[in-house]
Structures are given as structure tokens and as C-alpha cells.
Nucleic acid binder design. Sequence first.
RNA 1: GGGCCUGUAGCUCAGUUGGUUAGAGCAGAGGACUCAUAAUCCUUUGGUCGUAGGUUCAAGUCCUACCGGGCCUACCA
Length: 549
Amino acid sequence: MNQSTAREILVTSALPYANGPIHLGHLLGYIQADIWVAFQKLCGVTCHYICADDAHGTAIMLKATELGITPEQLIAQVQTEHLKDFTEFDVRFDCYHSTHSEENKLLSEQFYQRNLTAGYIKSQMITQLFDEAKQLFLADRYVKGQCPRCKATDQYGDNCEVCGATYSATELLNPISTLSGQPPILKASEQLFFDLPQFQEALSNWLQSGSLQPEIANKLREWFASGLKPWDISREAPYFGFKIPGYDHKYFYVWLDAPIGYLASFKKLCAQRSDLDFDHYWQPHSSTEIYHFIGKDIVSFHGLFWPALLLGADYRWPTALNVHGFITINGQKMSKSRGTFITARSYLNYLNPAYLRYYFAAKLTPKVDDFDLNFDDFTARVNADLVGKWINIASRCAKFINQFFDHQLSPNNAAPELLQMCQNAQTSIAEAYQQRDFSRAIREIMALADQTNQYIDQEKPWILMKQTDEAARVQDICTVGLNSFRLLTLYLKPVLPSLATEIETFLNIAPLQWVDSKTLLFNHKINLFQPLLQRIDAKQIQQLMDPAS
RNA sequence: GGGCCUGUAGCUCAGUUGGUUAGAGCAGAGGACUCAUAAUCCUUUGGUCGUAGGUUCAAGUCCUACCGGGCCUACCA
């Protein structure tokens, strides 16, 4: 690949909110993006993976108050925990920042100023519910009352869970603030709106760009058809966030500065790296690629507001949104009351993160479908595929090489057809990774593992070993097995980086790169095989699912 | 209420632009082997593709309705 066509990629994952722990639902998205990035890097592509904590908003302000600490203390604590969780799950960000940062403050103000100058920001008086006791304007989720249509009680301020009606919080009957328990009053204030309708035409190009999954393009088309509305980007004090320039008591709404946090995080990375230029990635018509990995719940922010804001501030558009579905646990929504709310930390208390990364990979496709984490299937799949098929190849072959051949691989290729097939699979597996069709990649890898086990079974080295004149043949056969194992390890490396590293040590080889699929290993001394992965015990799952855990 | 997505063997999933007897892995059954973390190998039983209609020479694949699940509906992030 020559200089002019070399890919340069920036990947982001959705920013986790800094008021709670990372859970398995979060992890699905981060691990999906991490695998994709790891694959790019293995191929030698320039690829940066960034993220940050989403640290602003009313919820964080209230949570800090509740804990008797400052918001700054809260978000610092949470960020440390988030980063620890990600690291232990082998999610390797090139930069993990916070939206409550100097970079983000400057960029948010710049986005605002540029959009203001271009005529995309408008001010308007609106009337909202106000909690006099707490001196706060109330977001929909902080108001409960009776549905104006079906009269159901205890409904939140945006829609009715009983009859499905949508309405504005001011229409609720007998509204109550969930913060103070007092009825709110109506209060008028001036708010700033981002004038989304002006981007109608530009966004229709975005829709037709082909860089959105079909399901997502449909969804956007729907919002489009019902008419774009101006977006309220300001919030009244008290609020935890950035003050809007020119106003004493107004702050940017958290969802304005959250996606800008992508740029802030990248800016920080650029400051640390002399080879990186911020503008090269973000200026209009940049030749670089930018991908946002997000969940389907935040498509509106990334599919409508975000491209419009970028355009209004004279930045380029993302190359694509890669949207994933929600996770369910044993077919049920993840929820605390159902006992299916599993945090990253509680998982780590009982299970190896490699299991989860593998299971996610084994079932992830480029589609937006929800993902069911079925623990029976999880156990069967991990044990059968990873331990029974893949690791087993090393285990059964290394025994002979270690014990009878002084750890030395044979100089001969006794099964050129099998190994050629394993090498050729590189093309198709790479294509699957590239398209985020990880499940297809895993299917192909495991099919190769099956064929390798079949080969060993046909050759029966354990029988040949008893015939004194066939020893060299045994060395040949096991060398084939370990060569296959090396290739399979390379193909699994984006998914299982830590295991791959341990295996590189076992095989006594340099860190595997994708181009290493073109080579084989002969006449080479390996190290003593040691068990690399334990099978999952059903008891571990029981402990994890135990509500007390 | 409106909209988007989704429903294939016991479980988890593939099924390319509609085209011969609907596939895989796991689980189950029978057998082989014993090098390997009770791993592996061979053979094999399971499906009127959510339901009911329709279009077509031909439908899991297209259309309609209904049933179940998920999500969105812009101020929870």
C-alpha cells in the first residue's frame, strides 16, 4: 500500500455517563469497536480509538449532591472505575478523556460561536415546569403525573407507558416533582435553540450517503418525514456543565458537548503525539475515516444533531455510524429488578473477560439486532470452541514436541494442503472483520479448528509414537497442528489479545501481525505448553447470577 | 397512538438479488479412540422457517393482516 492510499482511521465509542458503573450492555459496544480497531492495527493500518466519560448534566449534579461530594469529585471517581473496567476487559483506548475538560470547553464554545455566527442558533421564550423548592427547571424524567389521555397515574413527563401517548410535561395532570415531591409551577425563560430545520437538505444527502445501515437510514427518514424541529441546547443554572458565552445563568445541554467530547479526546491525543494532526482528521474533505460506534438508543443524536452541528461549525462528517442493538440477558431486558443487571465488575469477580469477548464476537454481525447473552449457550460455546477445539490443538500437539523432540518443530511441511487452506482463509476472515461480521469470522476460524482436529485424528501420532521408526513422522504431524494453531491464534487475536500474547510466548515468536498469515513455522524451538484457558464451570455462572453477588 | 426493527431445529445462529430434497455449532442418540483441560473423531434423530391469507411457474426470502419481542417518538443520559 503506498503513501497516498494508506488508510488513517479514527474510531469512537459512545461516551459512558459518569454517574454509574459500566455494565455488560455497555461492554458490547466497546468490545465490538475494540475488536474492529485491533484488527485494523494488526493489519498495520493507522487507527486511533478514543473515548471519554460523559460528565455533565442534571443527573450528575444531583447524584453528587446525594453523595455529599462535588460533581468534580464524583466524575473523577467514576472515570477511574470506568477506565479500570475497560482495561481489564482488554478494551484499549488510545485516549480516554472526559467531557469536563479544557479541550472540550474550548471546542464547545467554538462549535457554539461558529454556529451562532452562521445563523444556526436562535433564542426563544419557552415555558417549562419549575421546582420552586429545589429552584430547578425539571427535565421530563423528573416529573410524574397523570396521563392526559388515559388518566393513568404515575407516568413520566414525556410519554405514557400505559396507553403509549406522547405529550409534553406541561400537559401532565396533577404533576409532581420527583425531586421535591412538590407540584411544579410554570415558569417562562429564554432558551437557545439549534435550528435543525436549516439542515434539511444537507441531512438528506447524509441519508443517501450509503454510510448508514439500512435500518438506521429508515429510522432517520422517519424523523425527516415528520419534520425537523429546532433543538433546545441550553439549560438554566444550576447545572453541571459549561456556561454559554454571553450568558450568566445558561449552560450547554449535556448532549451538545457530549459528541464534541470525541474531538476533545482526539485533541488530547494529538497533544501527546507529534505524528498526529487534529485538523488533518477533522477538516472538511479530509481523506481520513471517522467511525462512531454507538447503540441504537442514541441514533437521533448522532444521526441528526451531530452531523448538522459539525456542518454548522465547518467540520467534516463522520464516515459512518456503526450501530449495535441492545443486550438481553437470558432473553430478558437487563434490569435490576429482574436480577439481570450485571456490572463489568461483578462479571470480573467470577469470570475471565476473554470468555465474554469471544462470545460477543461469535454472535456479532453488522446488523442492529439485539444481542442475547444466554448463559447456557455462553458456557457451551466458550467451552466447546475455545477449550475443546482451539486450545486443544496446542495441548495435544505440544505434548509430543515438548516431550520427545526437545521442543523443536520439524523442518517439513507434512500437510501443505491443510496449511495452505488455513493461510488462504486469511482473505475471507479479514473481509468479515472489516465488515464487522465477526460471527462469520469466528465460524470460519472454528471450521479450520475442526479440520485441524480431524487431521490429527486421521494421522494418529499417538499410535505412530509407539512405532520406533515413525518418530519423525510424529514430529511432522504435530508441527502441522501447531502451525494451524498459530494461524488460528492470529485470526483470533483481535478478539483475544491477551491470550494471543501468552501464546506468542508459548510459541516463542514475535507478536503476530496479519501479514504473518503468509508464513509458516518450521525448525523452530517452542516453549513448554501450559494450560492457557480454563473451561467455564456452571457454578461460576450461578454465583454471578446470584442476586447477592 | 404513530413509526422502525425483529420472530428459522431443544439452545444460539447462517440462509447471498425469490429458484433444485432449508444449513451450521452446541445439546440428544449410537459407535470409535485414548495424544489432549472427560478434550477429539465417525454416524445419526430433530424444523408445515410466529399465525392466516395473497402475488408468482417458483417464497424462509416479496405484499397484507394479526400475534409475540425490542427500540424510537427529539428535555434521562
